[in-house]
Design a protein around this nucleic acid. Sequence first.
DNA 1: AACTTATATGAACATATATTCATATATTGA
DNA 2: TCAATATATGAATATATGTTCATATAAGTT
Lengths: 101, 101
Amino acid sequence: MEHQYEQLDEETLFIVSQTFKALSDPTRIRILHLLSSGEFSVTEIANRLSLLQSTVSHQLRFLKNLRLVKYRREGTTLYYSHDDEHVLHILEQTIRHARDH
Amino acid sequence: MEHQYEQLDEETLFIVSQTFKALSDPTRIRILHLLSSGEFSVTEIANRLSLLQSTVSHQLRFLKNLRLVKYRREGTTLYYSHDDEHVLHILEQTIRHARDH
DNA sequence: AACTTATATGAACATATATTCATATATTGA
DNA sequence: TCAATATATGAATATATGTTCATATAAGTT
């Protein structure tokens, strides 16, 4: 499956690298993978993954900035869910690929 | 496209994060993207991308360790090419996705 | 208003990473 | 063997990043 080589402009390069950077950290991968199965509050995520609330909150902010997750509020609780089907698809694809080894 | 949540084991998590880490750096992205169009020597890559030979060599070693690239020798020249269709596919897919913005 | 629960934030720290410079290694040809 | 060319390597440096701790903010309840 060859194709035409096309120079990468600065902006595309930035977006692409940022996207993959989001997926390059084990903690963020675990969070995104969990969110692929539904929505969870910050505390739930922390408990399920055995992480500090602060760690989860920091990483969720990171993912939120890249619009990979979103949240809805219910009282004091924020329920996070994924917000980028494409990126999630790539992640799950790669997880399956990695497991075949 | 929902699916069953399945805990990620340590090894899978490591492979997945390493794979995405490879794709998270602008220089490596540019190298891989160039290699998606054919094979090039280290010097050619450096010239085309305006990088130091040393930088390219370091990054190629990184990519080689993850088996994302391979090379063949011709005299003193090493011609590098990509060696992972799946990862390259993901990269090109994400580049196209990023350009739609 | 005071208290509780949930989440966010900022500083500090340790660690990881990319690039550069200088130099080493390897292959070819004279 | 010596020179030339291509590539690899290691140390040094600057920067980026992830986690932790302490604390702040925000919403709900009494």
